[in-house]
Design a binder for these strands. Structure first.
Lengths: 228, 228
DNA sequence: TTTGAAATGATAGTATTACTATTATTAAAA
DNA sequence: TTTTAATAATAGTAATACTATCATTTCAAA
């Protein structure tokens, strides 16, 4: 049985639905790989068109500009991640186990092939690691937010915050803790690889030191009910 | 008595030292205000030259490109922040008090006018909030790191990590916790203003809720010595 | 006072980017 | 079969991120 996961995307993210044609899917697929290798700043629609084997104009028929394409990719990632979370947490009982699973999912590369194999998940993880912030750290945050481009991120954040509240209903900063976890899972990974002096886990020394750090951070916050 | 604070900057950041001339100082001063209002992407040397009242070519004589100029501004900020930390912590005894002071310094606008009044500190804070990440989230991290462009950030991180170790020598993630604090102090501030759903402190509802959150996060981690 | 070097101004030019527009061609649906 | 939609091919534009050249000013040493 082959189950196809289709994530419903916000229609304002694209001009023509890239899932609706082979060309569209290739554009997204190749874009992810290309942004990974080139970095978002050096990535252009011209180069993308070349490797996809189409023209610049055709790419523009799918996405208004490269920022929208990045938004699309990142939004897809968060929606997929929420799906993964729901899927893997379902059969677990107890908030603690569930939270640990979430951290595991966030802090490492996912071997799971839910969501299809046609996407390069390693490249996707890297793109998220390098470029997530760029998606909202622009002067258009307000407008983009109104168009609900960040909804998948907020949804995931809210879901994790919900788990935190399950674990300890008295903890008052569940959303901030969730967004901290989401951001740090990726950023600490980046630091580990490129600016290890900002971490305590040298370049790949301890494979799950990052996970341990995040777990400790989250649970110590949730367990400490002392008011400050 | 007027004390002049001069921060020694990494010489590779500029072509001609902007502190060495009035024009250079104006370039940096105006750049900060301009990046604040326009955002880094829309900020150009041409526009900068116009408002400074000089030519594009002259700006290029000080900074190789706009990314270097941003690096310069951010590096200055971190160096200044470390100075502020040292200055304000000096007379405090006990790691707890010191850490709380650091969080206070990081999480709000600083009213202090150490470092001179000629710089728009509010604009500077905003520039850091919006653009810090962009400084290292590029394909040039490795090269830029070798040129020691991130040293001020690392130094501040190490200093804060040191305070954490003073507070609890058994805590093993002092650097990661410090970089988490540094990043989140700015990012949560941004979320609070622009994506409040990711936080628990609505748009400016509670003025120091962010500080409380960060304090709780840091101290609960430091107090929880239970191994996980 | 002259000389010379350094800094700046004025102006031009280039490759690339991020698009928009137009028309031709092909493929799929009615 | 006709129509429509999608794509290819090509061109063009304004802006960006620079580089280059040369003239002018400044200011200090000889």
């Amino acid at each position: 049985m082959e189950l196809q996961l289709r994530i419903k995307m916000n229609e304002n993210l694209y001009l023509r639905d890239p899932e609706s044609s082979e060309l569209g899917r290739r554009i997204v697929r190749e874009a992810i790989k290309m942004i990974d290798t080139l970095g978002f700043e050096d990535f252009t629609f011209k180069k993308l068109a070349e490797t996809v084997g189409t023209t610049e104009a055709s790419v523009y028929r799918y996405f208004e500009n490269k920022h929208r394409l990045l938004l699309y990719i990142i939004a897809w990632y968060w929606a997929w991640m929420e799906y993964l979370v729901v899927y893997h947490i379902n059969n677990l009982d107890g908030a603690e186990k569930r939270i640990k699973k979430v951290i595991e999912l966030l802090s490492g590369h996912i071997k799971d092939n839910i969501g299809g194999d046609e996407l390069d998940k390693t490249a996707l993880f890297n793109v998220v690691m390098w470029e997530v912030n760029k998606v909202y750290l622009t002067k258009e945050v307000g407008a983009d937010n109104q168009l609900k481009f960040f909804k998948p991120y907020k949804d995931l954040c809210a879901r994790i915050a919900g788990l935190f509240t399950d674990y300890n209903p008295k903890y008052t900063y569940s959303h901030s803790l969730a967004s901290t976890l989401l951001e740090m899972a990726h950023l600490q990974h980046f630091f580990m690889q490129h600016l290890p002096a900002l971490t305590d886990y040298g370049k790949g020394k301890k494979p799950n030191a990052l996970r341990t750090f995040l777990e400790h951070l989250v649970f110590s916050a949730l367990n400490d009910t002392k008011a400050r």
